[in-house]
Amino acid sequence: MSISHFSAVVLFSLFTSVVFGITQRAQPKMMAWFGALCFGLFVCGTIAASWVMWLIKH
């Protein structure tokens, strides 16, 4: 099996966010919000870090 960097980021973020959402909040609605927030931060944070690394290299 081989996956792209972006696929790996999305899968990692998805599964990790589900666990964080369920374990770090008590109400179902807040779980969904927190999970979505974690997912967005994971993906956007990785993309931002990738651009920073690209800028440092160039």
Partner: peptide, 21 residues
Amino acid sequence: VRGLLLMVSILCMFAIGIALQ
């Protein structure tokens, strides 16, 4: 529901890790 979501998430992460060698 929480248990199944946790199970699926953790099992999938583990299985993908194994599949990626």
